[in-house]
Design a protein around this nucleic acid. Structure first.
Lengths: 331, 331
DNA sequence: AATGTAAATGTAAACGATTACATTGACTGG
DNA sequence: CCAGTCAATGTAATCGTTTACATTTACATT
């Protein structure tokens, strides 16, 4: 069932059929009716591949997630989808599982014209690759970015967020603060570590890298790290974890040795995962404006689709620290 | 940069270039080298849209998820991706957010030939729509199915899983067992409710529908339900929740009134979410073979891609009940 | 009546690949 | 030396659209 069949049934040319489908003006009401009837009659559905080839665009945006096991991305995606739909774009998702080969595979959809643009939530591509890609195709980053990369991105001020969290602990009197970071080599990790460091130094507290430990983001890993940190001398009295899952691991370990988060040790996580408010104790956390991160990233990529050589924008959205039971110590 | 440009640079016809790209035999080593050199020289990348149009296939499979906020799907997807890759297919994901309109929108990729097949993890389409679709396009279901639908699917035996969980409680002496179900009208909900009911009836225990309550799968909703259930007379001494998030909500409520899951009330959840083993207390749960559900669904859809009229397969994979702290009462 | 204008429709060339079929030329065997 | 074979390559049709341009027709203007 192609446009040709419709044309035959309706007794018009394929051009006219196409005009009707695309709501082109200048086709008489009578003909329009005939064509529409024919379309219904033979149950015709336009072939998007043919259309895309001719128009050389797909009206699709690719979203690249590092994993599906982190619900953090859910609201971002919602933002992406809603704004994309508004603008007439469809959204397709791919999951890289932190594998750069998979990432390259899906980014080929960009070079092979299967999608018009791509939003990366986490990339392991080299700076060189990113730049090559972004200079030739609409490609933007959301939440994480690659240092010095020449493309548009949107994220929060990770450094400042960690700085504020650390400062909060310092103001409360904590002299020894630990950090459970991650080993994904993400920009956010680096920036948060830097913010933590800056706050300490600024407060005249000795900065000791031993107190920053890298995890694989699994709670189990945070449990081990928490154990190690507590064996240090002096032991930290407050912890900053770069994700709520890590905060959970730490709290779990504390429980296992009879300590209580928010009483014996204070903890702040990152991301405001839904479990953060449900866990016992509930977890203080740095919340990101996830929906807006999503909508903004769509705007950035569409800007690039419309004009590949538009200026690269770096957008910083505001974060918010939510204080809950895990930071209720009076210390 | 098209195949024409390559042909010009290499001094051959486009057919020869195409042959080299597709590793066709019968092109001399000398010419092959020339063509490859030209491809590199002008940095040519084949346009997949053109290719797909001509070959009328996309080598892509669409996976339709109801949500991104449930990590349950992560391992299933992993299975899907790995098996699909093995078979030379790419995987694209779309999220319906439980909205049937969104579902239809993405399923258009099937009718418009943008993907070769689709795997649905949760559908709200009517039986009629499902049948229409599945009879014309490769479309299969995974984990959830639509009653009487004429298509292939793979899932666990939900009814029996709930039956076994209920029976476990009964054997332990529980006389009053509650169920926290869901209101998504999913097949799994219905089947699990039926299994629960059958176990009760078979054990000669009065079946009272008041003890089955529907949630929206959010922990908060389970908290309310748990409160209501405990006010019944008699109050249930064991609970079956159709997801681990619901089990968490119930446990959280119990804590809030000074009761302890696994001691005062026993609870079994579903899905073996990663948080189930990390929560305090850890949660007993019905685990599904997620990875295998994924790989199997790919096999089913590829079978349909290769032969749309192949017989519809209904595959049941084994589940497993994991007993943890939330079912440690000696009662 | 001749001419111009505009609306409605048709014709045919793209888009970028694959592939059936045709052609070329070198080589073989009788 | 000629017919036949086969490997290597080219020509052109095709996939299903959109769209620039051409054509037709009706009507208004002079």
């Amino acid at each position: 069932m192609t446009i040709k069949d419709v044309a035959k049934v309706a007794g018009v040319s394929i051009a006219t059929v196409s005009r009707v489908i695309n709501k082109d003006t200048s086709v008489s009401p009578v003909t329009t009716k005939k064509v529409k009837k024919a379309i219904k009659e033979i149950n015709y559905i336009p072939n998007t591949v043919g259309r895309n080839l001719r128009k050389s665009k797909s009206e699709m945006i690719l979203v690249m997630l590092p994993t599906l096991s982190n619900p953090f991305y859910s609201k971002i995606l919602k933002g992406i989808e809603e704004r994309a739909t508004e603008q007439g774009y469809g959204v397709l998702i791919s999951v890289t599982h932190h594998d750069v080969k998979v990432e390259r595979k899906y980014l080929k959809m960009l070079t092979t014209k299967q999608v018009d643009g791509a939003i990366s939530l986490f990339s392991k591509l080299s700076l060189q690759e990113i730049n090559d890609l972004a200079s030739n195709y609409p490609f933007v980053q959301c939440c994480e970015y690659t240092e010095d990369a020449k493309l548009s991105y949107v994220m929060i001020d990770n450094q400042n967020a960690a700085y504020e969290a650390t400062q909060y602990f310092i103001k409360k009197g904590h002299q020894c603060i630990g950090m459970i970071s991650g080993s994904f080599y993400a920009s956010s990790e680096k920036l948060r570590e830097q913010g933590y460091k800056n706050a300490l130094i600024e407060a005249g507290i000795d900065y000791d890298p031993t107190y920053i430990m890298k995890s694989n983001y699994k709670p189990e890993s945070a449990m081990e790290i928490c154990q190690t940190l507590l064996q240090l001398d002096p032991a930290p009295t407050a912890l900053i974890a770069v994700s709520d899952t890590l905060a959970i691991g730490a709290i779990k370990y504390l429980k296992s040795i009879g300590m209580e988060a928010g009483v014996d040790i204070e903890i702040i996580g990152f991301d405001n995962a839904s479990i953060a408010s449900l866990y016992e104790p509930s977890i203080s956390t740095v919340a990101q404006p996830r929906y807006d991160l999503g909508t903004t990233s769509v705007e950035l990529v569409i800007e690039k689709i419309n004009n590949l050589h538009s200026v690269n924008k770096k957008i910083i959205l505001p974060h918010e620290i939510l204080f809950r039971e895990s930071t209720t110590s009076k210390k």
